[in-house]
Nucleic acid binder design. Structure first.
Length: 475
RNA sequence: GGUGGGGUGGCCGAGAGGCGAGGCAACGGCCUGCAAAGCCGUGUACGCGGGUUCGAAUCCCGUCCCCACCUCCA
């Protein structure tokens, strides 16, 4: 009955023991809005959406904060890259670019049924909290402004013995790439809390601060926003596996060094690979949200991304959406068969086995096994004419699919699509009458011609005792 | 090199000492005019080599291979 989650810091399953009984505060690292959302972003957001839905089902009042990093080197660079493309047109300012991408993210999340977070703070709306936090760290001797006049402020890793608690990374070997440009830091392990404004950067990307105008470093954003929106101690901190180090390690160090307890549990979702390969721009194999939503209906995309355990690495393959479509179709067909038999769903009750699987570190795959078992038993009962069993099975499937957000009946087509459907229905039903007449006359060749025509058009027929049902393939 | 995570049947994907989760695909059967849908059944699965045990995919020892992070990344 207790919800357990795998905690990265202790490397073990931990009981969820909320700071405030009955309430759960959860902070999830959202995207840096630099470019369009891809399958990995969706999977991450979906993982915490599933957790949030399950906790709410379990009766917790969940406060979910998912930030938007809308000021960052990456965003400034993305805009800079666009500039020379068309000199006749003014490039968007960085903040317009960030907002446009943010809207794309919101649209993609909404499309696959990720519920809106309780709050979705933007970094640029919380600069004050970041400046305060940095000031606190300086006061406590864990951060220092650069002495080279750059306006940079660095976290002093050596001053904080707790550094490394989350990932047990020594921190010694942290010197390469961009960070090797140590500028004015005392140790290469130190990381930037504040980046002093540089002349080539837009004036709009600088905020005043006691140690010089500039902008926040990435890590400090999350520390400041988590504390501001959830308080000094909260229950769950989530994010992608790739953020464990250095991002989350640094976050933990900053916040604890500033004197707050910070997150109790650290949860990390697994990454998505595509056909066995890591997604990367150079390989050109990135799968974007728009690709997925163009290839399958949203509920199928959601199912495909939710079906694997959130901590496992998920390899997205060419057939993944087809498989998901079949699985969702089975759920759908149970509902259709029950309805055709005139059986209403009983109360939506979640089976014990499903709940136990979900309580145990969000065991979605095992929970789906229970769901599909129930589908089969429902179908058996329809064949056996056992109305009561059917009603309960259908109710249970609605409950289980509902809490996972994959109940097809809650994903009705957009209202605007109905007229097209009506027009199609008129044609199909006309043809079905023809076929019915042919079948009555035992003119199988004529009947099959009609069916072949419809099949070729992507319409599937099912002959039942009380007539023929039709549906668009994959719907 | 350091820090984590893995190798399960044709594919995806759970489980973690004892009746082969579940989905997809395949094959056989029931049903059907034939199909479709649904149901029933079939498959000597747990990287490799040892060991412990009445019994191991699950524990122990050894060994091979893969992935992620350590630089920005969900």
């Amino acid at each position: 009955m207790t919800v357990r989650l795998y905690d990265t810091r202790s490397q073990s399953l931990q009981d969820l023991d909320p700071v405030v009984p009955g309430r759960v505060g959860m902070y999830v690292c959202g995207p840096t809005v630099q470019s369009s959302p891809h399958i990995g972003h969706l999977r991450s957001a979906l993982s915490y959406d599933l957790l949030r839905r399950w906790l709410e089902h379990r009766g917790y009042a969940v406060t979910l904060i998912r930030n938007v990093t809308d000021i960052d080197d990456k965003i400034l660079n993305a805009v800079r890259r666009q500039e020379p493309a068309d000199s006749s047109r003014q490039a968007d300012p960085w903040w317009a670019h960030a907002y446009r991408v943010e809207l794309e993210f919101t649209a993609a999340y909404t499309a696959i049924g990720v519920l809106p977070p309780t709050n979705e703070p933007r970094a640029t709306g919380n600069i004050g909290a970041m400046v305060d936090l940095i000031g606190r760290l300086i006061d406590r001797g864990h951060a220092y402004p650069a002495t080279d006049g750059s306006g940079d402020v660095y976290f002093d890793v050596g001053s904080w013995p707790g550094y490394g608690t989350l990932t047990r990374q020594a921190g010694d070997a942290l010197l390469s790439g961009e960070e090797a440009d140590t500028r004015a830091r005392r140790s290469p392990r130190d990381f930037a809390l504040w980046k002093g404004h540089k002349p080539e950067e837009p004036e709009s990307a600088a905020w005043p601060a006691p140690w010089g105008a500039g902008r926040p470093g990435w890590h400090i954003e999350c520390s400041a926003m988590a504390e501001r929106y959830l308080g000094p101690e909260f229950d769950i901190h989530g994010g992608g596996l790739d953020l464990r180090f250095p991002h989350h390690e640094n976050e933990l160090a900053q916040s604890t060094a500033s004197g707050v307890p910070f997150a109790r549990l650290w949860v990390h979702n697994g990454l998505v690979t595509v056909n066995g390969q890591k997604m990367s721009k150079s390989l050109g194999n990135s799968v974007y949200a728009s690709d997925l939503l163009g290839a399958a209906r949203p509920v199928v995309v959601r199912y495909a991304l939710a079906a694997a355990h959130y901590r496992s690495d998920r390899d997205f393959q060419d057939g993944s959406l087809v498989e998901a479509e079949e699985a969702v179709g089975r759920i759908e067909r149970l509902f259709e068969r029950a309805a055709a038999a005139g059986i209403d769903a009983a109360a939506a009750v979640i089976p014990e086995a499903f709940a136990a699987a979900m309580d145990d570190d969000l065991g979605v795959p095992e929970a789906l096994a229970v769901l599909h078992d129930t589908v089969r038993r429902g179908n058996q009962a329809i064949d056996a004419g056992d109305t009561d069993v059917v009603a309960h099975a259908v109710g249970a499937v609605h409950a289980m699919a509902g809490v996972l957000g994959v109940d097809p009946t809650t994903w009705q087509a957009a209202p605007g699509g109905d007229r097209t459907h009506d027009a199609l229905a008129g044609l199909v039903e006309r043809l079905l009458e023809e076929r019915a007449t042919a079948r009555r006359n035992r003119d199988w060749a004529a009947a099959d011609r009609v069916r072949d025509t419809l099949t070729a058009a992507g319409i599937v027929l099912e002959d039942g005792a009380d007539g023929t049902r039709w549906s668009v393939d994959g719907r």
